[in-house]
């Protein structure tokens, strides 16, 4: 039973706009807009989780979806 990941969830209030997540996102899913991060291409996300690992403010994480029974 694998846990499906459904891409990044952003807690905008906690984002301080450092831009680390967007700069190192390998699929260019994230972009800085007005000092806050936005997920501009959610479909391209490969759930690598680097944004979550390197967000100093815990403002982004990968959402877990339904468990896959297959």
């Amino acid at each position: 039973m694998a846990v499906k990941l459904k891409g990044p969830v952003i807690k905008e209030e906690w984002c301080k706009g450092c831009g680390i997540c967007a700069a190192f996102c390998p699929k260019n899913v994230l972009k800085m807009e007005g000092n806050k991060v936005k997920a501009v291409d959610r479909d391209a996300c490969n759930n690598c989780g680097l944004c979550e690992l390197r967000c100093p403010d815990y403002a982004i994480y990968l959402e877990e979806g339904e468990k896959d029974d297959k």
Binding site: V9, K16, C55, P56, Y61
Partner: peptide
């Protein structure tokens, strides 16, 4: 809207932290 990891180990009433934007200390704490 916070990851389970953060919810499980942080004092949520103390977040967000006051480290500067881009400070790496949040990454090390995680």
């Amino acid at each position: 809207m916070t990851s389970n990891l953060v919810k499980s180990y942080f004092r949520m009433d103390k977040l967000p932290h006051i480290w500067c934007p881009g400070c790496g200390h949040g990454i090390v704490t995680r």
